[in-house]
Every structure is written in structure tokens, then in C-alpha cells.
């Protein structure tokens, strides 16, 4: 198992290299305009432009720039490790901004994940066990709502109803408005500020997970080994929660890993609605402003998240399903 993990980690590095290279290539090969022009301000003289290009290394060929980027990334630059350079747009070191923004997105993604996992799986189980009842229909109705409601609409409605600054009934205004408070500053503020974004973001996923859990569990409960479990006289509770759930949760693990990984790249809409200056909002802005160092930073983080979550999923999967282990 250890050898397997090491082998996979080497692959993570290969993937990261490929991803950064592609990002670089896209940036230089696509006609997006010259970042030096943006940076040099209004009506720059050719001398200023030349100087800016030289300072940023934009005068060198793209592979030289890529090499420079790689060596900075691995050995660090004057702003520390990992060296990500400084933003063409804000002129702040990218590393600093990344460290500022990453905790916001991570808080949002993992908090929401906990909410949707608990909510979705619970609803799915209840729905499957009470198939066809009013409860099941209500749950699936909720799921449909969750899938169809756009996040920005849900977010705005939540703010209107529950935020101090919202326009809804006063007695419901028990949560602070938008923004983000670092955990280190005030854990309770951090929590209350994040409740709404968590739930809003989680609803969409919870809906998917509820439907998937329900479907999987219903299918599993029709398997022959469930009949065996009943035939040997197990209690229904044990049949469902031990034999049924174990088999129906494995596909959910896969989905969960991928969903989390993608969210680490930024939940742009949720971040925007709730004014959480996370990675998503940053990525969007950096792309619009041709801020290559920032774009590359976000891409590296996202790719890293995807690769690592993939690895984790495979490890958990092998643990859950012995048939995978022996292949």
C-alpha cells in the first residue's frame, strides 16, 4: 500500500507539471493582449514598456519563463516558499494573496461538504427506506428544488431572510451579513458568517447526494446478499445500515472526492454573493486582467486538490471494497 501511495504521489507531480505547462502555453499562445501594456499604465512610452517586459521576464521566450516559474515554485523567491511571483495586476506577492484567500475557500468548501454529506445521505436513506410514502415524496421534492434553484438566487434569498442587513421579517435576522472573519480572529464569528454560504452551497450538492444515495440504496436492497442477510435472521436495522449502506456508499465516496476537489478551485458564485474573497473570485479577476502569476497559482492549487482528492478516493475505495484491493 505504501509503495502504491508513493507511486501515486509521483504521478501527482507529473500531473501538476503538465497542468502548469498547459496553463503557460495557453496564456502565451492565445492572443489575449500584452500584460506589460496593462501594467505600464496609460499611454506608456516604448521605453517604459520595454523596461516592464524586462522586469517581468516577458521579453524571454515562454519556455524560459516557464523554467523560471518552476525554479521559483520549487525553491522559493524573495517573497518565500513556494515562489509564485507577484501579481501583474495588484502588485502584491501572489503567495501572500493565496495564503489570505485559500483559508476562505477551504472553510467554505469543507464546511459545505459536511453539511451536504450529512443532509444528502440522511435524506437519501430515509427516502429509500420509506419509498413511495409522503416523506419520500417530500424529500425528493426538496431534492428537485435544490437541484433547480440557482445558487445566486438561493444566496440572495437567504441574505434577505436571515442577514442582519436583510429586508425580510426582523425576527428572522439572526445571522450576520456578508463577508468573512478569519477563524483565528473569532471562531464564533467565523462560524456565523459561514452558516449561510455553507447551507446555500450545500443545498445543490445535498440534492444530488440525496437522489444518488436513495437510488443506490434501493438498488442494493434488491441484491441477493441482502436477501441472504435477512435470511440469516439479522435485524432490519443491521441489514440496512451494515449490509445495504456499505455497498451503496462506495460510489458516493468517488463523487464526494471530486466535488470537494472542484470546490477548492473556488465556488465563484457563492463567494461573490456572500462577498467571501476566496480563490474563485480571484481566479475570475486574474483571468480577466491577464494576471498570469495569479492564474497559475489558482490553477496549481486546484490541480493539486484534484490530484490529492483522487488519491484519497482511491485509498478509501480500496479500504471500502476489497475487490479493488486485490486487483
Amino acid at each position: 500500500m505504501a509503495a502504491y501511495i508513493v507511486r501515486r504521489l509521483v504521478w501527482v507531480i507529473v500531473v501538476l507539471l503538465a497542468v502548469t505547462m498547459i496553463t503557460f502555453a495557453i496564456f502565451y499562445l492565445l492572443p489575449t493582449g500584452d500584460p506589460a501594456v496593462r501594467f505600464a499604465g496609460k499611454s506608456p512610452t516604448p521605453q517604459v514598456l520595454e523596461e516592464v517586459r524586462r522586469q517581468f521576464g516577458l521579453d524571454k521566450p515562454w519556455y524560459a519563463q516557464y523554467w523560471h516559474f518552476l525554479s521559483d515554485l520549487t525553491t522559493g523567491d524573495k517573497y518565500g516558499w513556494p515562489g509564485l511571483g507577484f501579481s501583474f495586476d495588484t502588485r502584491i506577492p501572489v503567495r501572500e494573496e493565496l495564503l489570505e484567500r485559500a483559508p476562505r475557500t477551504l472553510s467554505l468548501a469543507f464546511g459545505a461538504a459536511i453539511v451536504w454529506l450529512t443532509l444528502g445521505v440522511t435524506i437519501g436513506i430515509v427516502s429509500a427506506l420509506r419509498r413511495g410514502t409522503l416523506l419520500d415524496r417530500a424529500a425528493m421534492g426538496f431534492a428537485l428544488f435544490g437541484v433547480s434553484a440557482p445558487v445566486f438566487w438561493l444566496g440572495l434569498m437567504a441574505l434577505w431572510l436571515f442577514a442582519e442587513t436583510g429586508g425580510g421579517p426582523d425576527w428572522l435576522h439572526f445571522l450576520p451579513g456578508t463577508g468573512y472573519v478569519p477563524f483565528s480572529e473569532s471562531p464564533s464569528e467565523w462560524f456565523t458568517h459561514l452558516i449561510m454560504p455553507w447551507v446555500v452551497l450545500a443545498l445543490l450538492y445535498a440534492a444530488f447526494y440525496a437522489r444518488m444515495t436513495r437510488g443506490n440504496l434501493l438498488e442494493t436492497m434488491g441484491e441477493d446478499y441482502i436477501r441472504t442477510a435477512r435470511a440469516k435472521g439479522l435485524t432490519e436495522r443491521r441489514v440496512v445500515f451494515k449490509h445495504g449502506l456499505r455497498a451503496s456508499l462506495t460510489p458516493i465516496v468517488t463523487m464526494f472526492g471530486m466535488d470537494i476537489a472542484l470546490l477548492v478551485g473556488g465556488a465563484v458564485i457563492t463567494e461573490t454573493v456572500f462577498n467571501i474573497q476566496g480563490l474563485g473570485a480571484w481566479a475570475v479577476r486574474a483571468t480577466f486582467n491577464q494576471d498570469l502569476p495569479a492564474v497559475v497559482a489558482v490553477v496549481v492549487v486546484s490541480a493539486f486538490a484534484v490530484a490529492i482528492m483522487n488519491l484519497l478516493v482511491d485509498i478509501v475505495y480500496a479500504w471500502l471494497d476489497p475487490r479493488v484491493r486485490y486487483q
Binding site: D224, Y225, T228, K232, G233, L234, A247, D321
Partner: peptide
């Protein structure tokens, strides 16, 4: 339930599908 498996036991057609693959 207390009779099932204890006093009356049952085996089925497809032993491939009848044992839980993950235990």
C-alpha cells in the same frame, strides 16, 4: 426473524451474488 437462519435456514441459487462482496 428469530426463526430465520436459526431454525429454518435458506440457501439460494447464485452463490456469487449471495455473499456480501465487501465482508
Amino acid at each position: 426473524r428469530r426463526i430465520r437462519g436459526k431454525e429454518i435456514a435458506m440457501i439460494f441459487q447464485d452463490p456469487f451474488a449471495c455473499l456480501h462482496p465487501m465482508y
